[in-house]
Measured scan of single mutants.
Amino acid sequence: NQESVVAAQLIPINTALTLVMMTTRVVSPTGIPAEDIPRLISMQVNQVVPMGTTLMPDMVKGYA
């Protein structure tokens, strides 16, 4: 089963992602794949992401 990127903390809107903000977990439905974490660093979220929420492609500016 593929791991997806999950918020390790509350991420406010327009925050640039850092490694410490993200963790990985096997979730359903699947979100952004864990191997894309290096690509996500410094990208901004376009909404508030509560802790434990799976990051979906449409939540990250410039990802999709």
Rank of each mutant, 00 (worst) to 15 (best):
residue 54 T to L: 08
residue 51 M to E: 10
residue 20 V to L: 07
residue 49 V to K: 00
residue 2 Q to P: 14
residue 48 V to M: 09
residue 40 L to H: 00
residue 62 G to T: 06
residue 21 M to N: 04
residue 54 T to N: 02
residue 58 D to S: 15
residue 60 V to D: 01
residue 63 Y to F: 13
residue 56 M to P: 01
residue 21 M to Y: 08
residue 58 D to Q: 14
residue 46 N to H: 12
residue 31 G to Y: 02
residue 4 S to L: 01
residue 29 P to W: 04
residue 39 R to V: 06
residue 4 S to R: 02
residue 62 G to K: 09
residue 1 N to F: 15
residue 36 D to Y: 15
residue 61 K to W: 11
residue 25 R to L: 07
residue 48 V to C: 15
residue 33 P to H: 08
residue 36 D to K: 15
residue 54 T to H: 02
residue 57 P to F: 12
residue 7 A to I: 02
residue 51 M to G: 04
residue 17 L to C: 01
residue 35 E to Q: 12
residue 57 P to D: 07
residue 14 N to P: 01
residue 11 I to M: 05
residue 11 I to T: 01
residue 8 A to C: 06
residue 34 A to K: 09
residue 44 Q to F: 10
residue 17 L to G: 00
residue 26 V to Y: 10
residue 25 R to Q: 12
residue 54 T to P: 05
residue 53 T to K: 12
residue 31 G to T: 02
residue 37 I to Q: 07
residue 22 M to N: 00
residue 37 I to M: 12
residue 9 Q to V: 05
residue 5 V to H: 01
residue 41 I to Y: 10
residue 13 I to F: 11
residue 45 V to N: 02
residue 63 Y to T: 03
residue 11 I to D: 00
residue 53 T to E: 10
residue 28 S to D: 15
residue 39 R to D: 03
residue 38 P to Q: 07
residue 43 M to Q: 07
residue 41 I to M: 10
residue 12 P to A: 10
residue 51 M to R: 11
residue 55 L to R: 01
residue 3 E to Y: 09
residue 34 A to Q: 10
residue 58 D to G: 11
residue 19 L to R: 11
residue 57 P to G: 13
residue 61 K to F: 05
residue 12 P to G: 15
residue 46 N to D: 07
residue 54 T to W: 02
residue 37 I to D: 00
residue 40 L to F: 02
residue 32 I to H: 01
residue 62 G to F: 12
residue 40 L to I: 08
residue 22 M to K: 00
residue 42 S to C: 07
residue 15 T to N: 05
residue 6 V to E: 06
residue 64 A to N: 09
residue 36 D to W: 11
residue 7 A to L: 02
residue 16 A to N: 04
residue 3 E to P: 06
residue 7 A to T: 13
residue 10 L to H: 15
residue 22 M to T: 02
residue 62 G to Y: 08
residue 29 P to H: 08
residue 38 P to W: 10
residue 9 Q to K: 09
residue 4 S to H: 02
residue 32 I to C: 05
residue 4 S to W: 03
residue 53 T to P: 01
residue 47 Q to R: 13
residue 55 L to A: 01
residue 26 V to G: 08
residue 11 I to A: 00
residue 30 T to M: 15
residue 8 A to D: 12
residue 27 V to Q: 09
residue 28 S to G: 07
residue 7 A to V: 03
residue 14 N to G: 07
residue 36 D to R: 13
residue 16 A to C: 08
residue 13 I to H: 10
residue 49 V to W: 02
residue 36 D to F: 11
residue 17 L to W: 01
residue 4 S to C: 11
residue 39 R to E: 04
residue 25 R to Y: 14
